[in-house]
Design a protein around this nucleic acid. Structure first.
Length: 213
DNA sequence: TTATAGATTGCCT
DNA sequence: GGCAATCTATAAT
């Protein structure tokens, strides 16, 4: 699909995100994350994400209750929660569940499909190094030029938003569930979702092979 | 007020 | 495989 028509697709509706993050995370695989930069469009197919829950999930930022930092997770569904981590990286989430209930999905990896040259440039890479452009949450945010200052609290569900999630008719993908990456608490919960066999997922062990169960 | 861990990445040996 | 980079939230003095 050419990029001009990608940009014209309607964003996924609010109801898509007004559900359990585990269902949202699973169903986001195969959808397209869009960023509009003036006239340019950056886009990638979602191949990896993770669900984060509320009080039951010790690894979630929402576990200890609502703060200024994580307020978006407690708000209405379909909004961007962007946080800064390790002094170096931004990570992008979408809020889930109704207003007042905490939950979200972390975007962990994209297969670049439009605006690839610009995404690569944001990462100081060549376009042919496609697997390195957005294979990890920090890389993904850098490729899509996402920062907390610019994007935290932004609505994904608005045709005027420069941050959107759309369905381009790609169809069903084969989903694998694994434990989440980089956490120590609640590390056994199988809340990571990946497209089976995708070479664009994060982790050195995952290039071109089936992810570890 | 000070210490430490963190939903990561990239460079070093 | 080890570890530095480098900001922020939270726990410990």
């Amino acid at each position: 699909m050419p990029r001009s028509s990608l940009a014209q697709l309607a964003p996924l509706p609010r109801s898509f995100f007004n559900r359990d993050p585990r269902m949202v995370g699973r169903e986001l695989l195969g959808k397209v994350l869009l960023r509009r930069e003036g006239r340019a469009i950056l886009a990638g197919r979602i191949v990896e994400c993770e669900a984060y829950l509320g009080a039951d999930d010790a690894a979630a930022h929402a576990a200890a209750g609502k703060t200024a930092r994580n307020a978006v997770l407690f708000g209405p569904p379909g909004f961007a929660y962007v946080y800064f981590i390790y002094g170096n990286h931004y990570c992008l989430n979408v809020s889930c569940l109704p207003d007042g209930e905490a939950g979200g999905v972390l975007f962990r990896a994209l297969e670049p499909i439009a605006g690839v040259e610009r995404m690569a440039a944001n990462r100081q890479l060549e376009p042919r190094e496609a697997r390195l452009i957005a294979s990890g949450p920090g890389r993904l945010a850098e490729a899509m030029a996402i920062t907390r200052e610019r994007d935290n609290g932004k609505d994904f569900v608005s045709s005027r938003s420069d941050l959107r999630i759309v369905d381009d008719g790609f169809g069903a993908v084969e989903v694998r569930e694994t434990p989440r990456i980089g956490i120590t608490k609640s590390a056994d919960l199988p809340l990571r979702y990946v497209v089976a066999g995708s070479p664009f997922v994060s982790g050195k062990r995952n290039f071109g092979i089936t992810p570890i169960p």
